[in-house]
């Protein structure tokens, strides 16, 4: 699996989408409306209460946008691929991955690379930029670098969790319900972490490190005090994502091995 092969696939995927251009555009439009709905509800909520846990509207908008943006990046190379895996394993199409001279994981995620997340990216990036302007964030080199690294790491956390759920397809008949649970849990990070009790905060930091997706990076960038943590601890953020993703990848490949020895 090489980068040129990936781009080759993306080119074909784009060509395929363009076969149904109108549909594609309509879908993008619909998704923007749907996520617009989420933003509006949070906006109305804060209209009423001014702040939540000391975060005002632009700050929450910034937090939420990082969450959505990183989710879209991560999901574009994991969600649909992993969600459909149970079906592929059941009907045997998964086998055709194993007869190719490629890494099955890399091929699966690239073959299914989902251009449909462009809507998520558009709306979350726009709101993020708006929020950054409102918040008057300093565009220092370190801040820019930190934001970019955090976004990559956040995308990898999302992709890692979804990859892990996907690997369940090799063991159980169904895995879809785990995605439902994941989407429920993801709601935690639509709001600042201190809203929740200590136990939840610990769980979201250590067990399912969703807090690293958007809360920690946003808090550091907005200079919010996090339990008096020293500033250097902000550099944990870019490390957590790659680590999660690596663990998930190993688990997934382990799942393939199990599939090969147990068989369907």
């Amino acid at each position: 699996m090489t980068l040129p092969l990936f781009f080759k696939l993306v080119r074909l995927l784009m060509k395929e989408r363009m076969e149904y251009r109108a549909d594609f555009l309509l879908s993008i439009f619909a998704q923007i409306i749907a996520y617009g709905g989420d933003y509006i509800v949070i906006w109305m909520f804060i209209q009423r209460f001014d702040t939540i846990a000391g975060w005002n509207w632009p700050e929450i908008a910034f937090l939420y946008s990082i969450g959505l943006f990183t989710y879209a990046l991560g999901a574009s190379f994991s969600f649909v691929q992993m969600r459909d895996l149970e079906e592929q394993v059941k009907n045997g199409t998964f086998d055709s991955l194993l007869i190719k001279p490629v890494n099955p994981y890399l091929f699966l995620i690239s073959r299914g690379f989902n251009l449909g997340y462009i809507a998520h990216i558009l709306i979350s990036a726009s709101v993020m930029i708006w929020a950054i302007i409102q918040l008057d964030l300093k565009w220092t080199l370190i801040n820019v670098l930190y934001l970019i690294l955090s976004v990559i790491s956040g995308a990898l956390i999302n992709a890692g969790i979804m990859t892990l759920i996907g690997s369940v397809s090799f063991v159980w008949v169904r895995s879809g319900f785990l995605f439902n649970l994941f989407f429920r849990l993801k709601e935690f990070i639509s709001f600042p972490l201190p809203v929740f009790g200590a136990l939840i905060q610990i769980l979201l930091t250590i067990v399912m490190p969703l807090a690293f997706v958007n809360y920690y990076p946003a808090a550091f960038l907005l200079s919010k005090d996090i339990l008096g943590l020293p500033t250097w601890s902000m550099w944990f953020v870019p490390v957590v994502g790659p680590f999660c993703y690596w663990v998930a990848y190993r688990a997934w490949m382990g799942g393939v091995n199990k599939y090969q020895s147990a068989g369907g």
Binding site: E16, L98, K100
Partner: peptide, 25 residues
């Protein structure tokens, strides 16, 4: 199983009912 990647370079496999083709292209 062990030489999967290498062997697959020298094997051709056709699974009748399961297409590997790009449907819309």
């Amino acid at each position: 199983h062990k030489a999967r990647k290498n062997n697959s370079q020298h094997l051709g496999v056709v699974f009748g009912q399961r297409s590997q083709l790009w449907w819309d292209l």
